[in-house]
Each structure stands twice: as structure tokens, then as C-alpha cells.
């Protein structure tokens, strides 16, 4: 999400040169901790604040106020020749952890599965690990199968999926090109397979989607209030779309 925060900060500072916004990475926990310590005005987070964090904030006389500023959906993609068109979340987890190694096990052709992932430094990689491989269970310590290909760019993933009928990949919905096939995904315990789209992300029916948040200490005032107002504007939400995320408006 740091890319999005940076994108906004840069765009806003060109419109309002008198405002200085500095963005620091480090993960959602770091951001929220800084807000609680009073070292940051806004915490960007790709998860909602935990109860214990709210408690700590209250002991510091800080009342965190939540804003949903964007949404993010991750599409699972395969080669257009691949007959598979839907998978359950558990099946995707089993593919990436190395339990399923051939498309035939899923009712497809007898082909080895080639797993593609973004590099470990990508936020998408971490989200996919936590919410898909580990199905959101924080006790789960499953890792990506070691022969998972780690590609440095979204283009690398799309190119290989487009060319290779054995491949499976995932990426932010905004990065998906028309020459790959998007898979419909069903949530744990459900048989309702859903394609990712702005609508299915909006009504929460697509399972691999998340809200992206900003937290402020108390109701925002002055410059911060203006900035948050701008972030929800059409202009700022267009940056959301450009960076491959889903706008909230």
C-alpha cells in the first residue's frame, strides 16, 4: 500500500506545495504503532486496526478514526488454453503450498503445474501468503512451495501465464491483461464461484479482496482533514485505479 500512499502524497504536494507529506514504509503494524506513539499523523494500513491496538491508543489519549480509502482485489490467472475456470480458495492454497502438482488432480489436462508469484518484497506476496495459502489463519505456518517462481514484475507473470499452458499466477486486478484467463474463486466452505470485478469486490462476494485504510488520531483537523477529503475525491481515486487498486467511490 506504500505505493498508493506515495502516489497520493506526490500528487497532492504538486497541487498544494505548502503541504509537506512524508511517507514511510514498514507495514501496517508499524504505521498504527507510529500513530499511537504520536509520531505520525496518518497511519496507512492494509488491515483493520486490532482491538488491542485501540486499547493501547486509548491509554495514550488517542482515539483512532478509520477511513476506507481504497480496495484491493487479487486475481488468480491461468493460460487461456487451460480448461479450468474455477477453483476453491483451499485448492489455490494446495496448489501454491505444493500439495497439488498436476492440473489433472483438479479435473484439467495432464500437465505439471508451474506456480508463479511476485517477489517476497511485494505486499501482494505477503497478503497472498496470509489470506490464501494460510487461509487467514495466523497459527498456520505453511510456506510457498519452494519451486514457486518468484518474478520481479507483474509483466513477467502475465507474459509467462500468456505463453505457458502449465502456469498459474496471481496479481492485482489492475494488472490483469485480456490475454490471460481469470479464475472464479469460491470462499472457504462455499460453492459460489465468483469472478473478481469492481462489483464483486464492492459487494464483498469475491474472497481475495481487502479494504485499505487510513487511520487518524481523533477526528482529522485542518490540513489532514483536507488531505483525507481530497483522497476520497475523484481525482485521487483515479490514482487508485492507475496503481491497480479499486476505488471506493
Amino acid at each position: 500500500m506504500v505505493n498508493l500512499a506515495l502516489g497520493w502524497a506526490e500528487a497532492y504536494q504538486t497541487i498544494h506545495p505548502e503541504v509537506l507529506i512524508s511517507v514511510t514504509g514498514g507495514g501496517s503494524g508499524t504505521g498504527i504503532a507510529s500513530l499511537i506513539n504520536g509520531t505520525a499523523d496518518i497511519a496507512n494500513a492494509s488491515r483493520s486496526i486490532k482491538d488491542e491496538e485501540i486499547e493501547t491508543a486509548k491509554t495514550n489519549d488517542i482515539e483512532p478514526v478509520e477511513f476506507i480509502v481504497a480496495r484491493d482485489a487479487i486475481a488468480v490467472i491461468v493460460n487461456p488454453q487451460n480448461p479450468i475456470s474455477q477453483l476453491s480458495l483451499e485448492q489455490v492454497s494446495d496448489i501454491y503450498s505444493g500439495k497439488i502438482n498436476n492440473w489433472a488432480e483438479l479435473g484439467g489436462e495432464d500437465r505439471p503445474i508451474v506456480r508463479l508469484s511476485r517477489e517476497t518484497n511485494s505486499g501482494t506476496h505477503v497478503y497472498f501468503l496470509e489470506e490464501v495459502l494460510r487461509l487467514g489463519d495466523s497459527e498456520n505456518t505453511i510456506l510457498f512451495s519452494r519451486d514457486t517462481l518468484l518474478l520481479p514484475s507483474s509483466e513477467g507473470i502475465t507474459t509467462e501465464v500468456r505463453d505457458n499452458p502449465n502456469a498459474i499466477g496471481y496479481d492485482g486486478l489492475g494488472y490483469v491483461t485480456p490475454d490471460v484467463k481469470v479464475i472464479a474463486i469460491s470462499d472457504v466452505g462455499s460453492t459460489n464461484y465468483v469472478f473478481p470485478s469492481y462489483e464483486t469486490v464492492d459487494d464483498n462476494s469475491y474472497p481475495i479482496a481487502r479494504d485499505l485504510y487510513m487511520y487518524t488520531a481523533g477526528e482529522p483537523q485542518g490540513n489532514i482533514k483536507q488531505y483525507l477529503g481530497w483522497i476520497l475525491s475523484e481525482e485521487a481515486q483515479k490514482i487508485v485505479l492507475d496503481l491497480g487498486f479499486i476505488p471506493v467511490q
Binding site: 508451474v114 517462481l149 518474478l151 509467462e160 505463453d163 505457458n164
Partner: peptide, 17 residues
């Protein structure tokens, strides 16, 4: 663009990467 798809097909590998 060229070598990766070519090697996968010629050597019949799961991937050319």
C-alpha cells in the same frame, strides 16, 4: 520473449524460466 517459450517447447519442460 523468444528463448523462454522456445526452450519450453523444444525440450518439453514445464517452464522455460
Amino acid at each position: 520473449l523468444i528463448l523462454v517459450p522456445y526452450l519450453r517447447q523444444v525440450l518439453n519442460l514445464p517452464t522455460g524460466l
